[in-house]
Amino acid sequence: MRVLVLGMGKTGKLVASVAAEHGHSVHVLDAKENAGASALTPPFVSGFDVVIDFTTPEATVQNMRSCLATGAKMVVGTTGWYDKLADMRALAERKQAGLLYGTNFSVGVQTMLKLAAAMGNELKKAGYAFSIAETHHASKLDSPSGTAISLAKVVEAATGASAIPVEAKREGDVMGFHSLTAASDADRLVLTHEASSRRGFAEGAVRAAEWLSSRTGCYDFQDVYAEV
């Protein structure tokens, strides 16, 4: 499979390395080479089976507009752009392209989301108050994280709560720490996921690209990760 990786940050570089380990042909574009999505011309994009994006929210939207318009298959690991999701989904469907996005490509985080839903369902009638805390590296642009937002949505759907409070911190080079707390007058239950490296994200993104390579349409990784 021919893979184009957009972004040469720490996660983007690791995605390229993991894709190569999987036996794929890999080409990487950094921000300077692709300012304003200028490198993503239809002839260039057509040379790849899948595009994987780990850039910035602003760059991702420009990249998606260029790639999806050609009917390309695209995996987006960048977060912070979901206000444009409806537009990107419509573009993918109109051009018979493939778009797979996710707030977190770690299987561990996806399992956490399932457990969070179970916590919400079990505790919603017992007077528990839910809250979320997350910490990421200082260079992460969006706050709260996409994963924290997904976690809040899962708990809100399970409990019927209007909004789950989220505390977000940005410090050092923290890979990603998320915790969900359910507290009552009697006790406290805490569900935690802590990433020790970016490899889980990279592995998930490459597997997602392999899965998407034979499909069209728009998919949330949270809905399809068990198939990937």
Rank of each mutant, 00 (worst) to 15 (best):
F48K: 11
P42V: 04
C67T: 13
V190P: 00
V28F: 03
A90Y: 00
K84C: 10
G77A: 07
N121W: 03
A16R: 04
V3F: 10
D173S: 10
A133K: 14
C67K: 07
E203V: 15
D49I: 01
K114S: 14
S143P: 01
Q62P: 00
D83Y: 04
V76M: 09
A72E: 07
I52R: 02
S143K: 02
S179T: 09
E210W: 00
A133V: 14
G23W: 09
V15F: 13
G47W: 07
T181A: 15
P42M: 05
Q96P: 02
L123A: 13
F54N: 02
L99D: 00
A148L: 14
A209Y: 01
V26F: 03
T216N: 12
P144L: 08
E167A: 01
S145T: 15
V107Q: 13
S46V: 03
F221I: 11
S184E: 04
T159M: 10
L115W: 10
L40A: 08
T55R: 12
A161D: 12
A31G: 12
T70M: 05
L123W: 10
E210I: 09
P43G: 08
P165T: 02
F105D: 03
A86F: 03
M8H: 15
A182S: 09
T55S: 15
K13H: 05
L113I: 02
A35V: 14
L113S: 06
T103P: 02
F221P: 00
A168V: 05
G204L: 06
H27Y: 14
E134I: 01
V18F: 11
Q110H: 08
A168F: 12
V224I: 09
T147Y: 10
A138Y: 09
V45P: 04
G12Q: 10
K169C: 00
F130I: 08
A19P: 10
G36T: 06
S145H: 00
H22G: 04
R198V: 11
L189Q: 09
W211C: 05
T111Q: 11
D142N: 08
A202W: 05
T147G: 05
L151D: 02
V18E: 03
A129H: 11
I149S: 06
S213T: 06
E21N: 07
S196L: 11
K114L: 13
V45Y: 04
G204I: 05
D142E: 12
E227Y: 07
G146D: 03
T103E: 05
G71I: 03
R199S: 02
A19K: 03
V45W: 10
K125F: 06
A152Q: 09
M175L: 02
L91F: 04
A118N: 12
P43H: 06
I52T: 02
T181E: 14
A157Y: 02
A186F: 11
K95I: 01
G71M: 12
T11R: 05
Y225P: 03
Y101K: 00
L100I: 04
L100Y: 08
E122Y: 09
E134Y: 00
F44D: 08
E93A: 09
D187R: 14
R207D: 12
A202R: 09
T147H: 12
S150F: 05
S106V: 02
L115Y: 13
M88Q: 07
G77P: 05
